[in-house]
Design a protein around this nucleic acid. Structure first.
Length: 988
RNA sequence: GCCUAGGUGGCGGAAUUGGUAUACGCUACAGACUUAAAAUCUGUCGCCCGUAAGGGAUUGAGGGUUCGACUCCCUCCCUAGGCACCA
């Protein structure tokens, strides 16, 4: 009682503001470079400074890193523990629009409020390194990284249809969707083709996946990323399409219809049922291509089902033919074709002087549906790269490969035949079931439908189905339990390459256009979806797996998707699935390939509040990167920053900013007006803390090498497949260009569990269950808040707020405050004298606090400290050295109070710079231990024995015990299990 | 459907990794102090039988390994999260 009155009252507000000022003045937590200390980079995911401010859930992670960083500092580490603001992006912008404040002003205001909230909790941040993604000095380097990506071809423009949020009025990345809805506002997204910038994150898919293995991250986050990347290994297999065409084959200079591959190709195509015309053209030695073209036109009628093939000079004849046609033909195939009078071996004077090389490219393009250009890598006549020259003039697809004989002069040229025939390429992970592929299905978006439309007899119905399905949103298309729809494409059939079977081709929207090849082989016996589809449309189902299955196909409810031995599979019958995959792929000349579900990162937003993309569009030079010396491209101040919804950002309206001179040619040009997504700045901000003031380079190499990577990264799980994938991607890219020294940015990651409201619901204004940390700090103190949040339960688990439990933490803090009154210079006493038990307990507590803080098991640290405090409360006096040790253990958790008690005992310097206590292993052992005695594995008695007693003596002591005697009786001991200092089990 | 993490008193949760299950805290109840209340302090507090001494069952369910299982193995149920018509 006397001690109680001696101690001054615990006034948290006074103590906390006092020490916060002292720490700031003394720069207690400023990180200094160099020295011989090992480093520890401890990092929080930096917040959006939203208008609402923080609720008590936000600081949970910050408290955890704060404890960890203080602990590391006291253990002799050079600690980097910074904080900053992720202030670009939709939340900040929407807040600004809603409140009619310029985003720049709104963000400044919000940051000020956030910072005041954070500072009250007493974190050890080095504020001299504070970063803000909207600061031009910061986003200069965000733009710089974009330019490096652009230079390496990893940033490109595309007009593919992307996810468009009609409410946020901007394009979105795949990662920004939640069940097909905009993650921010919940609107259903539409597919809209708008021009946008895309980052080629898919180039890094394999590394992003395989490097996960070595990371010390929660398994669930790694699993999310694995799911998101979605790797699957399978085969690409081509199915020939059976069509009816008229082929016109034109031979080259000095040849005729009997030379090279022409006769062979004619036979092969005729065998497939096509009509083939191979003409001998007039004057093969000194040709006049105009005359030859007229000759061909007089002999052959060209229409939409004609395929024209020109070999060598025949290609030039084909241009002249196409110039003169009234209606387009289906396809033009150029084999070793040419478009200019250049030759590898010698000049051909007739080609140079007797012929014109001017062509009407527009007319030619108009008169042909599809162009294929095949170049021989070992050609001796046509110059290297001629296919690219032709492609520039005419478009089409080019293939550079090795012919059987140079210049495609072989009698047999299978590659030429392959390009003459139409094919559907499918991706499958189950090549072993290929014999059971009874039909093909293509996505409604598949180019084949358009390309082969003249051959499709029910084209009207097919087009109607396509039009209907393409309009549907992603959710409608993939809605669970949805009946499968589709329509057969009549007039076309495909050939199963294993057995030559003719199979139908369907179009159905259960096949997705942007995964695999946009077409599948359907194996209804062994794929649930195909099974449903086949049942509905009465398509054949053939079992090819399961020779050894107990039940037959008819008895299965649906498809059997497992592995097994093959049946009905020709020479592969009896083979195991796994082996058959490779063997069958090989037989049909398929390719083993790897596919990923990860899509490229749609990187532009048609919004105001983001980093401008540093590109200038010049009518002459195309897109030109802004020279690095001109960075940053400053986001201009505007009056109206509301989204336009037109696919253009509000920046497009600022002509003063938009109109610039092309950096390459100096002519009039326009700035890119799209901005970057909110994830841009956060993809590299952790590097900026290392070197926050650098204006010359992204980061100083020496500093980067010292501090990278982040040793402990803490944040919420919601960033699993966005921030954490994007940042890893950028980091790997920066590693590839030599800007950083590590391949991964964050070696260890912890997720804090969410703090829910006292009603078990997510804290939100909507439920009125939000608790503001300012109120808790004011009424109970920051130290109490910190201790409470750490004591709530395991760090990675969620828990709901409870004011009762908060009081428990407050009581503990006050108890510690009161204990200070018992401190004396003698040994810790209980009534009657010094107590060795308390010494043992102290050392146990040091050990537990040390290992538990290292593992983020803060709830058990608090409990251990409580146990010691409870014991001391029963003691008369507390030894001063023991007390100081205890304060140090508590210091990371309750920094203000411990600092106050530390200094009140006359200690020099901050407790937070003191050395962490070390436990003495020998002091952990007490003189006596309680030994558990079990009879047949059941606990019956506990006896106190001297430490390290031998088995013999322990058994003797146990058998002396009355209760043990009662249980053992006269039975002989069958077996004795003795665990020294712990347990004795007597089996009778 | 596939994958991942979980399931322990009235509640939040501990358990030295196979060795006394329920530490620590909250709640509740009783007592002390007080004119009274709050605060504080002290004590009791998982379940069933029993006045008690004592005994029995018990870590989502069932089975197994073991002298001994919250902990390891198998089957199943439930909760949370990720992916999902991805061929």
């Amino acid at each position: 009682m006397e001690n109680k009155s001696k101690a001054p009252k615990y006034e948290h507000a006074k103590i906390e503001s006092k020490w916060q000022k002292v720490w700031a003045k003394n720069k207690t937590y400023e990180t200094k470079e160099g020295g011989k200390k090992p480093k520890a980079y401890v990092l929080d995911m930096f917040p959006y400074p939203s208008g609402d401010g923080l609720h008590v859930g936000h600081p949970k992670g910050y408290i955890a890193t704060d404890i960890y960083s203080r602990f590391k500092r006291m253990n002799g580490f050079n600690v980097l523990h910074p904080m900053g603001w992720d202030a670009f992006g939709l939340p900040a912008e929407n807040y600004a629009i809603k409140n009619k404040i310029n985003p720049e002003i709104a963000v400044k205001k919000n940051i000020k409020y956030f910072k005041s909230q954070v500072e009250k909790i007493g974190f050890d941040y080095d504020w001299s390194r504070e970063v803000n993604t909207t600061d031009p000095g910061f986003y200069k380097w965000t733009q710089w990284i974009f330019l490096q990506l652009y230079k390496k071809g990893l940033a490109f423009e595309s007009s593919e249809p992307i996810n468009w949020c009609p409410s946020c009025k901007t394009g979105l990345a795949n990662e920004d969707l939640e069940n097909g809805k905009c993650e921010r506002c919940g609107s259903e997204v539409e597919k809209k083709p708008i021009r946008q910038w895309v980052l080629k994150i898919t180039d890094y898919a394999e590394r992003l996946l395989s490097d996960l293995e070595a990371l010390n991250w929660p398994e669930s986050i790694k699993e999310s990323q694995r799911n998101w990347i979605g790797k699957s290994e399978g085969s690409e297999i081509s199915f020939p399409v059976k069509t009816k065409y008229k082929y016109v084959l034109l031979h080259g200079w000095k040849s005729d219809s009997k030379s090279c591959f022409i006769p062979w190709l004619k036979r092969e195509l005729e065998a497939e049922g096509h009509e083939v015309v191979a003409l001998d053209m007039p004057h093969p030695l000194i040709p006049d291509v105009v005359e030859q073209a007229d000759y061909v036109l007089s002999k052959v009628k060209f229409d939409e089902n004609t395929i024209l093939l020109g070999h060598s000079l025949g290609s030039v004849v084909s241009y002249r033919i196409l110039e003169k046609l009234k209606t387009p033909i289906h396809k033009l195939i150029l084999v070793a074709g040419l478009i200019e009078p250049k030759f590898r071996d010698h000049d051909r004077l007739m080609a140079k002087y007797l012929m014109s090389w001017k062509f009407d490219f527009e007319k030619i393009k108009k008169n042909v549906g599809e162009i294929v250009i095949i170049e021989d890598n070992n050609d001796v006549i046509i110059p290297d790269g001629e296919s690219a020259v032709i492609q520039r003039a005419l478009g089409g697809l080019t293939y550079r490969l090795e012919a059987e004989k140079p210049h495609f002069c072989g009698m047999v040229e299978p590659i030429v035949l392959e390009h003459c025939l139409d094919k559907i390429k499918v991706f499958t992970t189950r090549a072993d079931t290929l014999f059971g592929a009874t039909y093909l299905v293509v996505a409604p978006e598949h180019p084949l439908i358009e390309r082969l439309s003249p051959q499709i007899t029910n084209i009207k119905e097919v087009q109607a189905y396509v039009a209907k399905t393409i309009k549907r949103t992603e959710i409608e298309r993939t809605a669970e339990g949805k009946e499968k729809t589709g329509i057969e494409i009549l007039g076309l059939t495909a050939i199963n390459p294993t057995n030559g079977q003719e199979i139908p081709i369907w179009v159905a929207d259960y096949v997705l256009p942007d995964y695999g090849t946009g077409a599948i082989m359907a194996v209804p016996a062994h794929d649930e979806r195909d099974h449903q589809f086949a049942k509905k449309f009465k398509l054949p189902i053939i079992q090819v797996i399961g020779e050894d299955l107990p039940t037959r196909l008819e008895n299965w409810g649906g498809a059997y998707a497992g592995y097994g031995k093959l049946v009905n599979s020709g020479k592969f019958t009896g083979m195991e699935s796994v082996k058959a995959k490779e063997a069958i792929t090989k037989m049909v000349r398929g390719k083993i390939v790897t596919k990923y579900k990860l899509r490229d990162w749609v990187f532009s937003r048609q919004r105001y509040w983001g980093e401008p993309i540093p590109i200038i569009h010049c009518p002459k030079c195309g897109p030109v990167p802004v020279p690095e010396k001109d960075l940053p491209v400053i986001l201009p101040k505007v009056k109206s920053y509301e989204p336009t919804g037109t696919g253009e950002s509000p920046l497009a309206a600022i002509s003063k900013w938009v109109n610039v001179k092309c950096p390459t040619c100096g002519e009039k040009a326009k700035r890119e007006t799209n901005t970057m997504p909110q994830w841009a700045g956060s993809s590299w901000y952790y590097l900026r803390y290392i070197d926050p003031k650098n204006t010359k380079a992204l980061i100083d190499k020496k500093k980067e090498k010292y501090w990278s990577p982040v040793d402990m990264y803490v944040g919420g799980t919601e960033h699993a497949t966005r921030h954490l994938i994007y940042a890893r991607f950028w980091h790997k890219f920066l590693f590839d260009i030599g800007a950083v020294s590590q391949t991964e940015p964050f070696t260890q990651l912890k997720n804090q569990g969410m703090i829910l409201g006292s009603d078990n619901r997510k804290m939100s204004k909507r439920w009125g269950n939000v608790v503001n940390p300012d109120d808790i700090v004011r009424d109970y103190g920051a130290d109490t808040l910190r201790v409470y949040e750490m004591f709530m339960g395991p760090f990675e688990q969620g828990a709901s707020w409870s004011s009762d439990n908060l009081m428990g933490a407050r009581r503990f803090v006050e108890k510690v405050w009161r204990l200070a009154g018992k401190v004396s210079t003698g040994r810790s006493h209980v009534l009657g004298g010094p107590d060795k038990r308390l010494e043992t307990l102290l050392h146990k507590t040091i050990k537990q606090a040390t290992t538990d803080i290292n593992n983020f098991n803060y709830n058990t640290v608090v409990s251990a400290l409580m146990i010691l405090a409870n014991e001391w409360e029963k003691a008369e006096t507390i030894n001063k050295e023991d007390w100081l040790t205890f304060l140090k253990l508590l210091a990371p958790l309750a920094p203000h109070m411990t600092e106050e008690l530390w200094s009140s005992l006359g200690q020099k310097g901050s407790i937070h710079l003191a050395a962490w206590p070390v436990w003495d292993e020998s002091k952990l052992i007490s003189d006596t231990v309680s030994l558990v005695i079990q009879i047949n594995g059941k606990t019956r008695e506990t006896i106190i024995i001297p430490t390290n007693l031998s088995e013999k003596e322990a058994v003797k002591m146990a058998l002396d015990n009355d209760i043990v005697k009662k249980w053992v009786g006269v039975e002989p001991l069958k077996k004795i299990i003795y665990i020294p200092n712990r347990l004795l089990n007597l089996v009778i």
